[in-house]
């Protein structure tokens, strides 16, 4: 029997969420860990999905099951749950991975319940491993618990599929291969009027929700050490100078100095920029789990024992109100030198 490793390809307005390609990458790795005939397949639900189906194949889906109908144009819990549940029942995949985005968590929770299987939320590590009492390797889904103080590995022994939602940005994207070959299978899911128990009246796009922290290359984050909301003007100035975006610890969000959308960490975003600057952030475990995979971490803190220094590539012990202005000045000087 074919062992199917499924990835739900999340899309909005015909654009895939990058986490989908990250999941195709891990799904491939997991499938290789069990080898015999394991296949990686994508599930796509929406309208006008031809282009995306092709893209999913380029990112490693061997088959893409596509539900393409105007009724699925925008995400709504009920119709999407109905579609995904029907496909799972039809093909019986062994593993089903969904991005731990707002949409993905909404969908995965509903699908797992309607199928009657286990779901591990917000995982940050995945492997296939031997578990006592099971004759085949199981999905070992690891996630932080109790505010990141503990990491727990969860298994789902007797139910199928083994489901997990996976944090964006903890795995790297699968490589895109434009000559990849794969099959597109169209699926028809009949939608009755009672399934459409909700309608979207309008979309509101606001500035805050356009902060794209997870996929930024450069992030400058401020913490309680800023001493007040005004401090973020300085953080923003440095971020602008570097072409980066502004991040924050939760302490500042709780204090109302900055919007939640900027929060990095366990209950905020996981980020993986090329450069992460942490200024006035102590480095609580919940903050570190969200940024410690960054390529280069520069930490600025007055306290020589700040735990943030344990994960920093380079640490400056000093006052951020002296260090950051000096940094802005030196970068400007370097840019001027460049231009003439």
């Amino acid at each position: 029997m074919t062992r199917r490793f499924w990835v739900y390809i999340e899309q909005e307005d015909g654009k895939a969420h990058p986490v989908a390609w990250e999941l195709l990458g891990v799904a491939r790795r997991l499938a290789d860990e069990v080898n015999d005939n394991a296949v990686v397949e994508g599930i796509l639900v929406g309208h006008n999905m031809e282009e995306l189906a092709k893209e999913a194949i380029e990112y490693g889906a061997q088959t893409v099951y596509v539900v393409d109908d105007p009724a699925f144009k925008n995400y709504l819990n009920k119709p999407y749950t109905t579609a995904l549940t029907a496909l799972v029942k039809k093909y019986d995949p062994e593993v089903l991975l969904v991005g731990a985005t707002t949409l993905g968590r909404d969908l995965a929770g509903a699908v797992a319940t309607s199928i009657g299987t286990g779901l591990t939320a917000d995982t940050t590590h995945l492997a296939m491993g031997e578990v006592k009492g099971s004759d085949k390797k199981l999905l070992l889904a690891t996630r932080p618990a109790f505010g990141g103080n503990v990491i727990a590995t969860i298994v789902c022994r007797d139910y199928s599929p083994q489901m997990a939602t996976v944090r964006p940005r903890v795995f790297t994207s699968a490589p895109r291969q434009t000559d990849a070959k794969g099959e597109v299978v169209r699926e028809i899911i009949p939608i009755t009027p009672e399934m459409i128990n909700a309608e979207i009246l309008e979309f509101i796009t606001n500035d805050a929700s356009s902060v794209k922290l997870e996929y930024a290359d450069i992030i400058v984050s401020g913490g309680r050490g800023l001493g007040g909301a005004k401090g973020f003007a300085l953080i923003k100035e440095l971020a602008d100078e570097l072409g980066g975006v502004v991040g924050s610890s939760r302490a500042c969000v709780d204090a109302g100095w900055i919007k939640y959308d900027h929060q990095v960490g366990q209950t905020g975003k996981t980020v993986r920029p090329k450069l992460y600057i942490a200024a006035g952030i102590s480095g609580a475990i919940q903050h570190k789990v969200g940024m410690q995979e960054s390529d280069f971490i520069l930490a600025i803190n007055r306290d020589p024992n700040a735990p943030i220094f344990d994960v920093a590539t380079m640490s400056i012990v000093g006052d951020l109100y002296e260090v950051i202005p000096a940094m802005i000045k030196q970068i400007r000087a370097l840019k001027e030198a460049q231009h003439g």
């Binding site: 990491i151 789902c156 139910y159 410690q292 590539t313 640490s315």
Partner: peptide, 17 residues
């Protein structure tokens, strides 16, 4: 359906300069 297989503490990273 889900059970805790094992628990642990997060990986330690090494500090830089």
């Amino acid at each position: 359906p889900t059970t805790v297989f094992k628990t642990g503490t997060p990986d330690k990273h090494t500090a830089g300069e």
